[in-house]
Design a protein around this nucleic acid. Sequence first.
DNA 1: GCGCGTTGGTAACGCGCGTTAGTGAATGGG
DNA 2: CCCATTCACTAACGCGCGTTACCAACGCGC
Lengths: 326, 326
Amino acid sequence: MAKAARRVTSADVARAVGVSRTTVSFVLNDRPGQSIPEETRRRVLEAAQRLGYRPHAPARALAAGRSDIVLLSLHSMTQGPTVTSVVEGLAAALAARRLTLVLHLGGEGTRPLPDVCAAVAASAVLGLEPFDAATSAALYEAGADVVLPTETDSLADYQREVGRLQAEHLIARGHGRIGYATPGIALAEPIANERLRGVGQACAAAGLAPPVVLTVDLEADSAARAVAGWRQEGVSAVCAYSDEVAVAVLAGLRERGLAAPDDLAVVGVEDMPTARLAGPPLTTVAFDSHALGRELADAVLEALEGRRYGLAADARHFRLIPRSST
Amino acid sequence: MAKAARRVTSADVARAVGVSRTTVSFVLNDRPGQSIPEETRRRVLEAAQRLGYRPHAPARALAAGRSDIVLLSLHSMTQGPTVTSVVEGLAAALAARRLTLVLHLGGEGTRPLPDVCAAVAASAVLGLEPFDAATSAALYEAGADVVLPTETDSLADYQREVGRLQAEHLIARGHGRIGYATPGIALAEPIANERLRGVGQACAAAGLAPPVVLTVDLEADSAARAVAGWRQEGVSAVCAYSDEVAVAVLAGLRERGLAAPDDLAVVGVEDMPTARLAGPPLTTVAFDSHALGRELADAVLEALEGRRYGLAADARHFRLIPRSST
DNA sequence: GCGCGTTGGTAACGCGCGTTAGTGAATGGG
DNA sequence: CCCATTCACTAACGCGCGTTACCAACGCGC
């Protein structure tokens, strides 16, 4: 602790090898178009390793005018094991291109996203749902080169596909009147609306009436009231916004002395770890979250290179897992 | 898009006001010991606002030798709604001191933590479980000023307290032989072991035999086997590592045609959203996650100022929520 | 009038790095 | 033997900022 702990700089490496700082920089950055003899390269790398040299990121960002940071914005509703998996896929794909992913969790009292973007000097800012125009503009203002996805990206297609899969499964099981269980949470609404739209499309395609939408809080009696409402309307199966909401509906049934799937079929979304442990085990729509992460990563990388990127709903990412609740 | 989009610098602000860059810096950083007339201060702030000036974080970090970034390291087991809440509390408390919190989610193929620390130039690195000596050293090497918590911090006390609360509740309910359900996951083991130790202490204090430990995967039949094992040993109540594991045990009971609490009482940890929706609603240990976040924030702030910090288990943060599974 | 502290500033350095423009030596072609 | 090219490498600038050292003007006591 007595040492001043001065950091090792590229000048130290240069001095150790007996070359200029420029050469060190060329070696460490694999500068294309600059021929470096193998011997020199080796000695530089060895010295850097031996001295424990690590480029100072802020200095690098300042000089180069760009950073290696990608920021992913999350909030309490874009969370859970599935998101974890998306993040892993994304981080791994970015790491392969020497980019570092960090997360920001928005919420009460936390800093506004543009501030965070500026604080880490992110070159790209990502989200799991589209940024509106004003937010995008603020992020560009804060120094981001790429903001993704925006409203023009057809990310909403993914969510509609989810709803469609849920409804088609129930319709194939012979249900003629479908309900939809939405949580009463503002943050969830953008996604909930898209999923509901997908359910509606499937119903229309099968010649059925539009789904009966009821709000279900994560409380058994709230769910019980909704269950009563659906049964009154002749609904025999409901699509839930998420597995959590689906579990609430199961609890509502239990409270009324009823059970899925005979009294009401229930299908969720996410395949959370406890979905298969519910009573009865929950039918749900899962998605290949690693693939989704990689796809997002591809889009960022394309965009960072200044090329057009494609971000389209790929139905193969989603699949319905039939269990005993339908 | 035609504009070169040059960023606004403090020199632009200085020029607009007609003062030196130094003065601008003094005003924006509230430099103590430098008297600035109210009129000048006002004009600088106004110009900065009007031009949309935002200090360039990397340049600032380079010049000042420190950054405003705090990095929190998570992995798939330190995740979920409760952690979200801890993060919110932490982020809010840090934001009040002009520090920015970002998250790193470790996992397969992601960058090593020291790399991430260096990439964002974090001045502090936090975790939800202690860093071992080697990791701490690597983080300091990577430029962190503060690493927290370490093995010398009594953070483990928190986890023991959790286990103790679970066991004491069951013992108070008259159970004489206690089981422990641990997940078969390496990442969870450090915490699981501490919680188990707390359970063991409570058992010993009540003059009971040590808990019967069985591994429970998040599958109904794995849990069913464990249930059979406990009943064979005369266990009438089990503490589960988490709510998820507890829900698995409930599923295992169901598979055997049994039910909590009569055939086996079950208590979880976390109070996840679906805990109250389980069949039967789950007794669990919840904790005041916002308070935990604030406490962590206080410790970081103290440590960043170079002062000693205290990080002690406060039992008031935890409470047992009795429901119908015990 | 002079010394002296305070007020309200400024000029200039350097943080660590990427990058551009060059430079001397070796090489090859005519 | 001379010129052109390639090779291997370097000097020096500037990114945007915090900070230190310094300075002119002013009031005030003597």
